[in-house]
Design a binder for these strands. Structure first.
Lengths: 156, 156
DNA sequence: TATTGTTATACTCTATAACTATA
DNA sequence: TATAGTTATAGAGTATAACAATA
């Protein structure tokens, strides 16, 4: 390996390092500020993601724990805890599945749908503030990169 | 507002939503897979970030808790916990500052430096796998976007 | 036997407030 | 009075293993 190659490799490592450090920081900030933005509703970003999944037209008839688990990339065990807290607060309901008696359908309760409606405005605003100075096309590019990153990591 | 404007706004919201959902997923995966990659060392991604901060040449003489807090964007209280666990495992030392007797210098112990050396290889490999198919220039762009995102969010 | 969802457990991380010792 | 770091506490999330009910 030539000196130049070593330099190049060191530069790449340096960039990778910076990228992940910034990503790590941004992830922390997302969790902190996101939870803060929804503070008056007492909803964390994890709960936000569950509510978001269940509020999709596709999920109108509920989702099984397994489906939610694959969709959100959260283990079933930990999802049980999350769902328990959301159920405790009255935002979701668990209904036994008619087709497979091992399975349950998780869906938004009326109170959960109401909550999601009230969350729309602050979430909308959060997005706008967070993505300020990032153009529409750049947002598309960003999604693409993050997607690649996420898919690569999930294979590790 | 015209119909076309409404359509445009809906499209933007849809994109924002997707962006944050993917970001959320990627953040979870980073934490899970990152911790997994360093499993044999028993180090979490948060601890990884502290070790990384302290291993920089700039931090050779240690960092105060305040400096670490600002650098990592973790509150002092929570940092105390993190540092406690790292100290318990023998990876860092806390030394009273000679200049300001309220302050302490946090630095890597010999065992911590040794750990960081051993972590280099798996971290290096993790980076390479995670960033596969993302060119050098795209990595730079990605850093730029994430930076903007992070700075925007921290102002919220 | 495999799958669905849960329980149990232990640990890490986060948020908030209050405290101490210096400055 | 303000700052540096810690303590205390409660809650939320995560990892792992094991379990009951059903397929």
């Amino acid at each position: 390996m030539t000196t130049s190659d070593q330099d190049k490799e060191a530069a790449i490592y340096e960039i990778n390092n910076r990228l992940f450090f910034r990503f790590f920081q941004a992830a922390n900030t997302l969790h902190t500020k996101g939870t803060q933005a929804l503070e008056e509703f007492g909803v964390t970003t994890q709960q936000w993601s569950v509510l978001g999944a269940l509020s999709r037209p596709k999920a109108e008839n509920g989702m099984s724990v397994n489906e939610l688990s694959r969709y959100l990339l959260i283990t079933r065990q930990n999802l049980t805890g999350l769902l328990g807290r959301l159920e405790r607060d009255g935002y979701i309901v668990r209904t036994p599945s008619t087709e497979d008696r091992r399975s349950i359908r998780v869906s938004l309760s009326p109170k959960g749908k109401e909550l999601w409606k009230n969350l729309a405005e602050p979430i909308h605003q959060f997005y706008d503030l967070a993505l300020k100075n990032i153009s529409f096309d750049d947002r598309l590019a960003l999604i693409h990169y993050i997607n690649t990153l996420q898919q690569n990591m999930s294979k590790i």
